[in-house]
Design a binder for these strands. Structure first.
Lengths: 219, 219
DNA sequence: ATATATTTTTAGATGATTCTAAATTATATT
DNA sequence: AATATAATTTAGAATCATCTAAAAATATAT
């Protein structure tokens, strides 16, 4: 059984390792969780003892099979709660993250399965991130950052890489949302900014930073 | 700001003091929270420093105005979540307590107000306990234990004193539920057991223990 | 290949919550 | 009022998660 804090470490490590594949460094974890490397060093040794990660001194850590399962359970809960907040309680997509960070630690298998059914077994959360099923199966569709599209290309916004309120509110202002169709009207080589058309009507300028954090599926 | 553990202490003290009125002893708190008196002694000194209770050495504690407000906020959250679990997620009334114990500590004023609206501003939880409103106002209707009713008296079941799964499942078996009409058919002086009629049909025997934990409103 | 910079780990300390055991205070009984 | 019993508090220790400062290991750059 993992503590709340341990769950947060594991989740961060899982995200940093891109689904449990890559090795993750102590400093990267410290940055992600806003703690000091010394604290991370302690904690990863504890998580290694609990067999959810494999730790080699000075070499960083890798998520184990058990660790991946545990991480996906937390992620499943986080994303289901986000759907609940947006679809049932009328939260905006930029308001859900902090609350879901708390709700994801509620321990009750019955609760999460009932919630999943209540929401109609949603496949993605309000930011387009896929929701693992009860068995931990997560299906990711091929998506690429908007700024990689060629001039004239058309695509549909499927997800956002950055779920911070600041970024999401910016997208709200632009009129960009999940499911919206976009077309690249102009690309500025110099700073990677673009001019895009949203839903065959609105035309907006977006910076490189914004373009990198919008994930699309090409038509 | 109170920690999760502090909130649990304060809530227990509030309940033991019958709404913040009475003085509560160290041992009573230890029993209620299943900790040792020594731990309680430490914690009540901390809660006194935080001004939510008033502590006098060797004399027990009393909830302050601020403490009552804080306790009612936690109780409000607990009961609203219970309503959500039963009405929206089809939990039985004996399954909600442990989950609500976790959910009551989620910190988000927006969440709880949205949840309250979503549920239609319920006035009581699945055990008949009144839900404080956002201002902490809690309206209690006059209720008495079933076993105090006279022979032949009729009443409506309004709440239960004991919310343990064991007791609630027993009530399910008897066919007793909130809102059910009851009539006292027989009273046994010797052991305080009774024979009662539920909803003008079922006739059941109930022990003194059961009768004391069912709260009714007389017609 | 060696010096320097960076990363990581360890050592030692702190605060929160809990415990056991011992000491103290209050209460109840004769 | 004296004593026995019960309740309460304190002292000291353990665990969890965190930190700073210092040491050790690894990586990088000439």
């Amino acid at each position: 059984m993992l503590s709340l804090v341990e769950e947060n470490y594991l989740k961060a490590i899982y995200h940093l390792s891109e689904g449990g594949q890559a090795q993750v460094s102590t400093n990267a974890i410290a940055d992600a969780i806003h703690t000091k490397p010394a604290s991370v060093s302690d904690m990863i040794q504890k998580l290694d003892r609990k067999r959810v990660i494999q730790y080699t001194k000075y070499q960083g850590v890798k998520v184990t099979k058990e660790g991946k399962e545990a991480a996906l359970k937390v992620i499943r809960k986080h994303r289901l709660w986000e759907v609940f907040l947006v679809e049932q309680l009328n939260f905006n997509w930029d308001e859900v993250h902090d609350v879901a960070e708390q709700l994801e630690h509620i321990k009750s298998p019955l609760l999460i399965e009932r919630l999943d059914a209540f929401l109609g077994h949603p496949k993605v959360d309000p930011h387009g991130d896929p929701i693992p099923d009860a068995q931990g199966v997560i299906n990711t569709k091929p998506q690429k950052p908007l700024h990689q599209l060629d001039l004239g290309a058309e695509a549909i916004i499927r997800a956002v890489k950055d779920s911070s309120p600041a970024f999401l509110r910016h997208l709200d202002k632009l009129g960009a949302y999940l499911g919206a169709g976009v077309k690249i009207l102009e690309k500025e080589e110099f700073d990677n900014s673009m001019q895009i058309q949203i839903d065959q009507s609105t035309v907006v300028f977006i910076s490189n930073e914004v373009g990198q954090n919008i994930l699309v599926q090409e038509n």
